[in-house]
């Protein structure tokens, strides 16, 4: 059993690296990522789990980082948008750029991570599958059409990539 007071030193596993940071027990994972670790690619759109802009992957699943306390995610594997591209853009990122799926860009990191988790499990989705998967990521600019097209395009890029390996 562990007890934590106002300020605590915690260990977080983010993008395959281990970080030791001091957090306020009230800090959410989102606060810790942005304010302590400078990982500002994760966006704060509502801070209430309603918009999906703060989506990160926890053990491979998309979650709202604003609705989890930082002290509550110790021992979990977190992936943020900064951890997605390796030497070059990930095929999902490439597809977003080329299909015009990015306008203001504020929903984009969360949208891409949701798409990543989704395509990890579903390699040949339909339009409706994609819409179900991203239904927790609000976008106000695009009307979603080009985002859905980008994710479908990314799926086919990933399928092609797999075949070559």
């Amino acid at each position: 059993m562990n007890r934590y007071g106002l300020k605590e030193k915690i260990e977080l596993r983010i993008n395959h690296a281990t970080h030791h940071i001091e957090v306020d027990v009230r800090d959410t994972l989102l606060d810790a990522l942005r304010d302590q670790l400078g990982l500002t690619g994760t966006k704060r759109g509502c801070d209430m789990g309603e918009c999906g802009a703060c989506t990160v992957l926890m053990d491979g699943k998309p979650i709202n980082s604003c609705m989890l306390l930082a002290v509550d995610v110790m021992g979990r594997n977190i992936m943020t948008i900064e951890g997605l591209a390796q030497d070059e853009l990930h095929p999902i990122q490439q597809a977003f750029v080329e299909n015009g799926a990015v306008q203001c860009g504020f929903c984009t990191p969360g949208m891409i991570l949701t798409a990543k988790a989704f395509l990890d499990h579903c390699s040949n989705p339909t339009d409706d599958d994609v819409r179900q998967a991203i239904s927790g990521n609000l976008c106000r600019c695009t009307g979603y059409r080009k985002i859905v097209e980008a994710i479908l395009d990314a799926a086919s890029r990933l399928r092609r990539g797999k075949r070559h390996v």
Partner: peptide, 17 residues
């Protein structure tokens, strides 16, 4: 395609907050 989409998909784009 918009060139500014690239820093936006990687999370590098800087917004005020």
């Amino acid at each position: 395609p918009r060139p500014d989409a690239i820093p936006k998909v990687t999370g590098e784009a800087v917004y005020t907050d």
